[in-house]
C-alpha cells in the first residue's frame, strides 16, 4: 500500500506530461485560457497541478477550500461561472486520471492513485458547491435588503 507521499511523488513525475497535455487541449477545457499564451496557460495549470499534489499528500481540507475560494474569485474575473469552474477542475482531474491509467498501466500504484484523484475531484466539487451555496445565501440577503429599500 503506497503512502500519500508516494502518490504525490508519482504525480510529480507525471506533471510535465500532464502539463503538456493540458496546454495542448486548453481550448477545449477553458475558453479563457484558450486566449492566453502557452506560457501563461502552462503557469495556470501548473498551479492547479501543484495544488492537487499538495492536497493528495496532505488531505488538508482547509487548504483545499482556501484554494477553491481563491480560484473561483480569480476565474470570475475571466467570466467563468461556478459551473464552469467545477467543469474545468473536474476536467483537469480527469485528464490526470487518464494519464495515470495510460502512463502507469500495470503498476500496482495505479488503482490507488486513480481512487485518490477521484476523491480530489469529489472534494473539489463539494467545496465549490458549498461556496456557491454560501454565496447564494449572501445574495438572497442582499436582494431582500434592496427590496426593503436599504443599502445593499
Amino acid at each position: 500500500m503506497a503512502t500519500p507521499a508516494d502518490h504525490a511523488a508519482t504525480l510529480e513525475s507525471l506533471r510535465p506530461v500532464a502539463l503538456a497535455r493540458l496546454v495542448e487541449i486548453r481550448g477545449s477545457l477553458d475558453h479563457a485560457l484558450a486566449r492566453v499564451t502557452e506560457a501563461e496557460a502552462r503557469e495556470h495549470f501548473d498551479a492547479v497541478l501543484r495544488h492537487t499534489q499538495a492536497y493528495v499528500a496532505t488531505w488538508d481540507w482547509r487548504l483545499h477550500r482556501s484554494f477553491l475560494q481563491s480560484y473561483i474569485a480569480l476565474r470570475a474575473g475571466d467570466g467563468m461561472s461556478s459551473d464552469d469552474v467545477i467543469h474545468v477542475l473536474v476536467a483537469v482531474g480527469d485528464v490526470v486520471i487518464d494519464l495515470v491509467r495510460n502512463q502507469l498501466g500495470g503498476k500496482p500504484i495505479v488503482h490507488e492513485l486513480v481512487v485518490a484523484l477521484a476523491k480530489v475531484n469529489a472534494h473539489t466539487v463539494r467545496g465549490v458547491i458549498d461556496l456557491v451555496a454560501e454565496e447564494l445565501e449572501r445574495r438572497r440577503a442582499q436582494r431582500d435588503q434592496l427590496l426593503r429599500g436599504g443599502a445593499p
Partner: peptide, 9 residues
C-alpha cells in the same frame, strides 16, 4: 455533487 452544483448555479 455536480448536478446539485448546477441547480445551485
Amino acid at each position: 455533487e455536480m448536478a446539485v452544483g448546477g441547480v445551485l448555479g
